[in-house]
Amino acid sequence: MIRIKELCKSYRTRRGPRQILKDITCTVHKGEKLGILGCNGAGKSTLIRIIGGIENPTSGSVTRTMSVSWPLAFQGGLAGGLSGLDNLRFICRIYQVDFVAARASVEEFSELGNYLQEPVKSYSAGMRARLAFAISMTVDFDCYLIDEVSAVGDRRFNEKFKNRLLDKTRDRSIIMVSHFYGVLREYCNRAAVLDAGVLRVYDDIKDAIHNYEQILYGKTITF
């Protein structure tokens, strides 16, 4: 279970503090798969990072009773200077995963082949995403935090990824940020809309999408 309680986050900007998340309270139970919708700059990534525990809330708390993955995003989590394998080795050490088994699984899943020996910074965005997911699959998390990345892979990989993830997370949780309604529908069983720092959770994804559309086109967006 992840319980978010009265969570606020504000960043300092030149014109004083700007509050991004306002008093968010929400709970994700084990097995629940939550999709988060929000326009650009609404603070989705920030929220994901706070849930992942790599950023501190200004106030409020996040309580985790299940293990949570690091936020799988375009960037982050992998060191550019190291090869894919070295990155895997590092992550295996931190999360205490057997490297040999993990390597086999990553090689099989990512289909990167010899590229695994190359520095990650030479990878394309898709390759990087594949590696990130492959590595994250080797570690057993109760909850996966996914930030947009599913959009990057090609269709075949997305299929593969979806199968693996859904297979793996049958009784686990996902918190996912995406602009693609299809993806949300595929993965999630609940959805939330983050707008103006406030998170509204809908039990039906349709409602969430509907609401989101309204927000998107109903008013001008101010940053």
Partner: peptide, 12 residues
Amino acid sequence: AANRSLLYHRYV
């Protein structure tokens, strides 16, 4: 700055 990406792991 050089290792910022590693901070994505909560333990780090």
